[in-house]
Structure formats: C-alpha cells, structure tokens
Nucleic acid binder design. Structure first.
Length: 293
DNA sequence: CTCCAGGGATCAG
DNA sequence: CTGATCCATGGA
C-alpha cells in the first residue's frame, strides 16, 4: 500500500485485494450513494459518496488507483484506513479459506476485492434492525432519511448518522414517518438501551461470540441474524456468521444439493467448516448468492 | 392481484 | 421446545 497527498486529495495505489464497488455493494453497509454510471464504468472503476465517523467522503476507483477527495493525511490514516480495513492481508485470508475449502475458489475469486468495513456500533445496530425483512434499497433510504433529519452535515452532500443522544426525543411515530414500519418501536428500544447504558460497546470487547450474541439479542428487533451482522461489521468479531435467506439458499445449494436445512444447523455447519474466518467466507458467499441465485 | 425482502416477536400447541 | 402467524412498506 502506497499513498500520497496531491492538492487536497489522497492518492492510494499498490493496494491488493480491494475493489470499491464490491466492498460497498456487498450488503454490509447502507450509508452510501454511487455517483458514476455503472453502465459506463468498467468493473474496476466507480465513484461513491459515503458517511462514516462523522465525515462525508467522496472516493473514486480508477483501475488500481484510488482517490480520496478533499481528505487530509490525518483523516486518511486515522479514519479511512481502519474503516476500509486496508492494513489487513486479504490474500492470506483468501488462501486460508480456499485451501481448506476448494469449492469456494470460484466464489471467492468472483468478489476478490471485498474488504470487511469496520463500521460504527450505534449506526450498525440501528441499520441492521431496519434491515430485518426489508430490501437493500429501502434500508438505504430509511438510513439516509434518518441521517438527513437528525444527523449533522458531514460534507460532500452527506449527513452523518445521528448519535443516540440526538435521537433521544425521537418517537416511534417519527421513525414510522421515515418508513421504518413495524421496526420503529425496535429503534426506540435500541436508543433507550444505549442512553441508559444497558448496552455499551465496550462491554462486548472481552466477550466470546455466544455471550456477545446473547447480550445483543436483549435489544428488541435483534435476533441471531442481526446480532451476527453487528458483531461482524462493527465489533470486529470476524468469526461471526449471519445467516439470512440468501445464505441459507447458497449453503444448501453448495453443500447439501439443494436440500432444506434449518438455520441453526447451518450455523453449526459453518462454524465447523470456516472457523475463525467465518465472517469473510460468509461475505464472499453472500455476494455470490445475490448475483447468481 | 399475489409474493417477497440481509427476521424477529408473539402466540399456539 | 418447535412451528405458524403477524408485522409496514414498496417493487416485481
């Protein structure tokens, strides 16, 4: 990885295993907008605006060159390198997965540029509550509308997702007006549990996966799938393995000849098969499933 | 019109 | 304990 500052931009090169569109469009994140025309851009070119850690970012990939517009060296190093997980060796991760599971070679290769973002806990908690029994474009719209209503201006046309205290007075009716639907009450409960200190991000640090999941499930609207998404995408628990309808489909197809299996059985199967790399395997499989099944 | 979405709460047995 | 039903909303 090499990066230099030119004008007010950071130019990033020599970063293997990184594709911007694959990373943002693989369902782990909802707070971004594509700015270029996907039909005109090639597979390795794209431009997005996104919001994270209170900042709006415009970022472009053109081949193997990445431009982070209007970004200081300090923000790049302290915010965006960790956010995009750029210091991690994904070549080693992919080798580990495919050497033990050759059936995943083509599936990993298809989206070989995915990186698992390190997202903020509170936004991830609410975003994946919103995601339950919902579709990605609708989830993105609700997240964007909540941010523009109650979040601060973050620059580059984006609003930051609001902090819990900024949502303290927001009612279930308010969330329903943002089209959160029946999840509105769950969002209120999550905000309350954060404000009361009943749920604190720091309390998850030393916890094992099972205890972590159990604690997250005390929030209304958080079950096994949502809890695993939160652990994987915002708590650094890379062995977490969320199973939704797509994961169920792809696992049944790849490993069980299309035979139906219970989600609990699939979870145990995945833990045995992928171990501490479960989260990575899951993301390659999810991207494949959404494209092909 | 029906069916379904990165599911979970609630209720019935 | 497992299984069925309901839940808002919008697009196919």
């Amino acid at each position: 990885m090499k990066y230099t500052q030119e004008n007010n931009n950071i130019i990033l090169t020599d970063i293997p295993d990184f594709n911007l569109a694959q990373t943002l469009e693989c369902g782990q994140c909802f707070h971004f907008m594509r700015q270029d025309d996907p039909e005109k851009s090639g597979k390795d070119a794209s431009e997005y605006t996104l919001a994270a850690y209170g900042r709006g970012l415009r970022v472009r990939q053109a081949g193997d060159t990445f431009t982070f517009f209007d970004t200081s060296l300090e923000d790049f190093e302290k915010v965006w390198i960790p956010y995009f997980d750029l210091e991690r060796d994904y070549g080693r991760i992919k080798r580990f997965i495919t050497e033990r599971n050759p059936e995943l070679e083509a599936i990993v290769e298809r989206n070989a540029g995915i990186r698992l973002l390190n997202q903020e806990f509170f936004e991830t908690l609410l975003s994946f509550i919103i995601s339950q029994n919902n579709r990605i474009p609708q989830i993105k719209k609700v997240v964007a509308d909540i941010s523009s209503e109650w979040g601060r201006d973050a620059g580059n046309g984006m609003n930051a997702f609001p902090d819990a205290d900024m949502l303290a007075e927001v009612s279930e009716t308010d969330f329903r007006e943002k089209k959160a639907g029946f999840r509105a009450a769950y969002l209120c409960d999550a905000v309350e549990k954060i404000l009361s200190g009943e749920i604190r991000e720091e309390d998850f640090e030393g916890l094992g996966l099972a205890d972590c999941e159990k604690k997250l499930c005390t929030v209304k609207g958080v079950g096994p799938k949502v809890a695993n998404c939160i652990m994987l995408f915002s708590l650094g628990k890379r062995e977490a393995f969320p199973i939704d309808v797509w994961m169920k489909r792809v696992l049944e197809q790849v490993y069980f000849g299309g035979e139906a299996k219970a989600k609990t059985e699939l979870a145990a199967f995945a833990r045995e098969k992928y171990g501490e790399y479960g989260g990575y395997a899951q993301q390659y499989l999810f991207a494949y499933a959404r494209e092909e099944l």
